[in-house]
Design a protein around this nucleic acid. Structure first.
Lengths: 143, 143
DNA sequence: AAAAGATGTAAATATTAATATTACATCATA
DNA sequence: TATGATGTAATATTAATATTTACATCTTTT
């Protein structure tokens, strides 16, 4: 499992939703058009963000809106909303526990601490990146 | 692209090579047996580690040995040996630059800084983890 | 000098994971 | 009730990984 395009698409959607506020109703088709991916992919991502409480989506009439101020939405929240298993699925370990070799039997335990450190550092970094900062960057780049 | 099993397998091999020193000749078949994966996979990983100067492999007669002290081999070196594109391939961005939407046109630039921060933090963490520390952990667990 | 046992790689295949599509039930407003 | 939207399951497609096969090459031993 990687930090997949889903995360990038989600950020794209959130910025779009923010920018479109008061201008246009943000439907999954509109987001699909902007991101270049399928409406169902969008609906799934949108659905995850909704479950995480980051956005609200009007059923029937349609349209997505932010529930929380961009300054209070972190990249970690976004990532976590999308990946139910979180960062623990980021790094793969080969299965070899049932072998005779003592290295094989213990490699999983040996790797646990280093990999945990990596996950923790990603988590910390993600927590320090807000949607607001990305929106600010967007405005900076556009103007 | 993820931080794949290759990395775990490489660490497995390096610990094995260290532990086997003076006891057995470490061939790709032996490593394949211990890790549970194919000898060709092992030979490819071993080849990468060799190119990175971490180990030396005797041609013909066979057998791998560490070239550098475990305390001077970092997880970052190991990872980099295996992934030619490095961490920059870790996080995916959806292609949408050719669209009319201003968000689509600029999302790539917006994402660059956050993703760079994540990569840097992984890099820093990996640099602080040595093969020696993992070998120490291994001994601690076994005894 | 040839046999044995290794590595080094290319190429073909198989497997698995990620992404996209189709289809349809459900919902809310005009 | 027609329209345009969301929600989600099932399936198909594509791309990334891993495996296998095959064989050239290398070095020591006999």
């Amino acid at each position: 499992m990687q930090i997949s395009m889903k995360c990038s698409i989600a950020i794209h959607c959130l910025i779009f939703i923010y920018e479109a506020k008061g201008i246009a109703k943000v439907t999954s088709n509109l987001l699909a058009e902007s991101t270049g991916c399928n409406p169902v992919i969008i609906r799934n991502i949108i659905s995850s963000l909704k479950k995480a409480g980051l956005i609200s989506v009007a059923r029937g009439t349609g349209g997505a809106e932010l529930c929380i101020k961009p300054s209070e939405i972190t990249l970690y929240q976004i990532y976590n909303a999308l990946e139910p298993d979180g960062l623990s699925s980021l790094i793969g370990i080969h299965p070899c526990k049932d072998r005779k070799c003592p290295v094989a039997q213990n490699i999983q335990k040996v790797l646990q601490s280093p990999y945990q450190k990596i996950e923790d550092s990603i988590k910390e970094t993600m927590k320090n990146i807000t949607l607001q900062s990305m929106i600010d960057d967007f405005h900076m780049i556009v103007n």
